[in-house]
């Protein structure tokens, strides 16, 4: 880990933004990913601005939805009565990630800023376009069983590791940020980027911007939902494929359906193709399977991760079927 200056901003987000701008560094909250990446010499900020004590640790009702402060611990968010009651998908997704200890440290904002678990990104001896733009990608011809199958580019096949973000994608969340140029909102689906030619640019955040909250809209509250995570251990492992889905059926037709996938792309993947096919359709197994297949049609797997295509299709269809049978 390189040496750095440390400053704590406890009073206000504006102070944090100002401190960061002075010091050209990174915001530090729970530290669960950033400290690890610094130890691995993947992140080498000259300064850290500790935002963990900012007054952003509240969950509040807002416009019929919820505002989750950026420094709310993941565990607190998952256990919060309003979250459990209205957005159980979010609670479940969070609880499927990491371990209890990590969830007690990790924050809302930090979870969004997690970086990939690609082996070659983590190994500074390997070539990685995300770590060192233009250096090449050793994953493409290397171990990529855990890698992306959707939205990949020749430059990067890494996945986004978050579970929470899969739920936030499905729930049409909005990210609130503040920065040197003031406050703005970013739709969750736009927050993370696909790799394209610039896999090192992972989010829409501009230099110095700070996440202050994530908003959940009223429109996605109280939907029957399931978060299904498939991984190599029964717990404490990143997703090979995860599905966060919500379904509402009215008069025998699908009135609302939201499907998001984890472990398959450089960003939490909103299955828009499948959703469009299913809107207004009958909630049948055949329709679910057809929609899932359509969603995965553009997949571009490698030799190790081809199984994810079929796995994602099966999981989408079975989660929707379960929702249709039991919860919808």
């Amino acid at each position: 880990m390189n040496s750095f200056s440390y400053a704590r901003a406890s009073e206000s987000p504006d102070l944090a933004v100002a401190l960061l701008n002075e010091n050209q560094g990174r915001y530090l909250a729970g530290g669960t990913n950033l400290i690890d990446l610094m130890r691995e010499e993947i992140e080498t900020p000259a300064a850290l601005v500790d935002i963990s004590r900012l007054p952003l640790a509240q969950i509040e009702e807002r416009e019929g939805g919820l505002r989750i402060g950026a420094t709310v611990k993941n565990s607190h968010c998952a256990a919060h009565p309003l979250v459990r009651d209205r957005y159980p998908l979010l609670s479940s997704a969070i609880l499927h990630g990491a371990s209890a200890q990590l969830r007690n440290m990790a924050t809302t904002g930090g979870n969004l800023m997690q970086r990939t678990r690609c082996y070659y990104f983590y190994d500074t001896a390997s070539r990685c376009n995300k770590r060192t733009p233009g250096s090449g990608c050793d994953a493409a011809q290397g171990f990529h069983r855990i890698h992306a199958i959707l939205g990949t580019s020749p430059h990067c096949i890494a996945t986004h590791p978050s579970d929470m973000c899969v739920a936030l994608t499905a729930l049409d969340a909005t990210v609130q940020v503040t920065g040197p140029d003031g406050e703005r909102s970013i739709a969750f689906g736009d927050f993370h980027r696909l790799p394209g030619n610039t896999p090192h640019v992972e989010t829409e955040l501009r230099a110095g911007e700070l996440i202050t909250a994530v908003d959940l809209p009223a429109s996605s509250a109280n939907l029957p939902s399931i978060y299904r995570k498939v991984r190599d251990r029964a717990s404490y492992a990143f997703a090979l494929v995860s599905v966060g889905a919500a379904l509402r059926v009215e008069d025998g037709r699908i009135a609302d359906v939201r499907i998001a996938l984890g472990g398959v792309a450089h960003k939490p993947w909103r299955a828009s193709i499948a959703e469009q096919m299913l809107h207004g359709a009958e909630p049948t197994e055949a329709n679910f399977r057809q929609a899932a297949e359509a969603e995965l049609t553009p997949a571009t797997p490698g030799h190790d991760n081809a199984f994810k295509v079929e796995l994602a299709q099966r999981m989408i269809a079975s989660v929707l079927q379960e929702l249709a049978e039991v919860k919808a």
């Binding site: 530290g31 007690n104 440290m105």
Partner: peptide, 24 residues
């Protein structure tokens, strides 16, 4: 943060003490 051997309690909650700065 992958093994839990460093677990301590902070304000009654368990955390991985390896993944955070003492200053925090």
């Amino acid at each position: 943060g992958a093994c839990g051997a460093c677990t301590v309690l902070v304000d009654g909650e368990r955390i991985n003490s390896c993944l955070t700065l003492a200053l925090q």
